[in-house]
Design a protein around this nucleic acid. Structure first.
Length: 122
DNA sequence: CCTATGACAGACA
DNA sequence: GTGTCTGCCATAG
């Protein structure tokens, strides 16, 4: 199968998430060039995170929680994140303000520049 | 072309 | 906080 630019960008974006930080699906989609392709990101993670050796555990949902279900990767993702120093509350929440990649609640000029730079490299 | 799937996001009651 | 609904998209068959 031919890798679409989007797929490549998504994988690159995921690989670019710093250790000890997390990114949301939406954030990855945005970096990949299409902020609305969240479902596409989901599909890619679901289908090839393993084969591509992606740091998939650094991708969580916008609520700051792990989307995987218990028994289906949840434990492993939590374990990996904790191993990287990410703090997860007893209720399973991760403070995006502290561990989110480019911690920001809105768009920042810095983030936009980073995204642009990123897309050029890919 | 059409339908189903998938680890979502955001708005709203 | 919860539950529901809609929007959106890449990919596979």
């Amino acid at each position: 199968m031919v890798e679409s630019p989007f797929t490549r960008n998504v994988r690159a974006a995921i690989r670019a998430i710093p250790r000890g930080r997390v990114a949301t699906y939406a954030q990855v989609a945005a970096l990949a060039g299409n902020h609305r392709a969240v479902r596409g990101v989901v599909w890619i993670l679901h289908s090839s995170s393993e084969a591509e050796h992606l740091p998939w555990h650094r991708v969580i949902n916008s609520r700051g929680t792990i989307s995987l279900r218990r028994g289906s990767g949840f434990e492993e993702q939590r374990r990996r994140l904790i191993a990287e120093g990410v703090v997860i509350s007893p209720r399973g929440r991760i403070d995006l303000a502290r561990f989110g990649w480019e911690r920001q609640k809105k768009k920042s000029a810095a983030f936009s520049r980073a995204a642009a730079r990123f897309l050029e490299e890919v």
